[in-house]
C-alpha cells in the first residue's frame, strides 16, 4: 500500500473485491476492517471499537447496496466486542486477527464448499432445477453435483437489471449441465415443469427471509403457488440483523417514479437492484451451519448477539 496516502476504507474494500472475484461482499468488508486494524494501531480497546465503528459506518454509507457488506462488518464488530471482554490478552488476539486476515477469505470459500456438500443430496437424477440470477454458492453446488454424475437440467433466468443470467448459463454449460436460458417473464410458463428452485442470497434477514437480486421474490412466489420447494444457499456470514417486511423496506437510491411526460429513454437498470423474499415462501436454507428452516436464522443470530 502507498505509504503517503491516508487509509481509505472504501478503496481497500473495492480493491479486495476486484482482486478476487470469488470473494463475497461481507468477507471483503471483514478483510478491509482487518486491514484498518493493522494500519490504525489503536492504543486502547475503546479507541479500537470506535475506529472500527466509524470505519464500518463510512463503508456502509459509501456503497450503494450495503446490506451484504453490513452483514460482514457487523459480524466482525460483534466478534471484536465479545472477545475484548472474553480474552484477557486482547493484543494477542488482535495480532492473530491481523495475521490471519487472508484466511478469512479461505474459510469463506470453505464454507461454500461445505454448503455444496450439504446440498448435494438435494440435487437428484432427472431433476429440473430453476436458478435465478448468478450465485457462487449455487454454482459450486451444481458443479459438485455434475462432477458426481448426477443427471439434471437447469433453467436459468436472465435475471434482468443485473443481467447475470447469461454468465451463469454459460458457466453451467461449460460444466456440461444441460441449461436453458429463459427471460424473466417466462418463469410462470416453465414453473409447472420445474422440480425445485435454487437461489443464492445477498443477505438473509432475521426472519429467514432473503435479500437477493431483484426478481427473486416473484420467482419464489410462483414456485410457492405451484408447491415447488425453494432452497436458498447462503453462507452464515450473510445473516444480517434486519427485519424487512417487504422489498419496500430496503433502501434504494433509484426508486421507481411515476411521470406523465416522456422524460428519457426507459432504462431497466435505473431501478432497485435487490428485493426481499419473505420467509414463508422458503422451504429451507442450506448453510454452512446445516440445513435450516427459516426460523433457524434468528436462532443463530441470537446466539452471537445475546448468547
Amino acid at each position: 500500500m502507498d505509504d503517503d496516502m491516508p487509509f481509505d476504507i472504501k478503496q481497500t474494500y473495492l480493491k479486495f473485491l476486484e482482486e478476487d472475484p470469488q470473494l463475497t461482499m461481507p468477507v471483503a468488508a471483514i478483510q478491509s476492517l482487518v486491514a484498518l486494524l493493522a494500519d490504525a494501531q489503536p492504543k486502547t480497546s475503546a479507541e479500537l471499537i470506535e475506529v472500527l465503528q466509524e470505519a464500518s459506518q463510512t463503508l456502509k454509507d459509501s456503497v450503494p447496496n450495503s446490506i451484504s457488506l453490513s452483514a460482514g462488518s457487523d459480524l466482525f464488530l460483534r466478534f471484536v466486542v465479545r472477545n475484548i471482554h472474553d480474552y484477557s490478552d486482547w493484543e494477542a488476539c488482535k495480532r492473530n486477527l491481523v495475521e490471519n486476515g487472508r484466511t478469512f477469505a479461505e474459510r469463506a470459500k470453505e464454507s461454500r464448499s461445505l454448503i455444496a456438500r450439504l446440498g448435494l443430496p438435494f440435487v437428484r437424477d432427472n431433476d429440473i432445477i430453476l436458478v435465478h440470477g448468478r450465485s457462487r454458492a449455487v454454482h459450486q453446488l451444481l458443479e459438485l453435483a455434475a462432477s458426481k454424475h448426477v443427471r439434471f437440467q437447469v433453467y436459468v433466468t436472465e435475471a434482468r437489471v443485473c443481467a447475470e443470467g447469461q454468465i451463469a448459463a454459460a458457466a453451467f454449460r461449460k460444466l456440461g449441465i444441460p441449461t436453458c436460458m429463459i427471460p424473466d417473464s417466462s418463469v410462470g410458463y416453465v414453473i409447472p415443469k420445474v422440480h425445485k428452485v435454487f437461489l443464492g442470497a445477498e443477505g438473509v434477514a432475521e426472519s429467514g427471509g432473503v435479500i437477493n437480486q431483484i426478481g427473486s421474490s416473484q420467482v419464489v412466489m410462483l414456485a410457492h403457488q405451484f408447491k415447488k420447494p425453494v432452497f436458498v444457499l447462503a453462507e452464515s456470514h450473510k445473516f444480517v440483523r434486519l427485519f424487512p417486511l417487504s422489498s419496500d423496506d430496503l433502501t434504494t437510491e433509484t426508486p421507481y417514479t411515476f411521470t406523465t411526460t416522456e422524460t428519457e429513454e426507459f432504462d431497466p437498470a435505473n431501478g432497485p437492484q435487490i428485493d426481499f423474499t419473505p420467509h414463508k415462501y422458503i422451504t429451507a436454507l442450506i448453510t454452512d451451519l446445516g440445513v435450516l428452516t427459516p426460523s433457524g436464522v434468528s436462532e443463530e443470530l441470537i446466539k452471537i448477539w445475546f448468547g
Binding site: V27, I30, L75, F76, F79, C93, N96, L97, N100, T103, F104, R107, A108, S111, E235, S236, H237, F239, D288, L289, E300, L301, K303, I304
Partner: peptide, 9 residues
C-alpha cells in the same frame, strides 16, 4: 456458529 469464519485457529 456464525463466528466460524472469524475465530482464530
Amino acid at each position: 456458529s456464525m463466528f466460524g469464519i472469524l475465530s482464530v485457529p
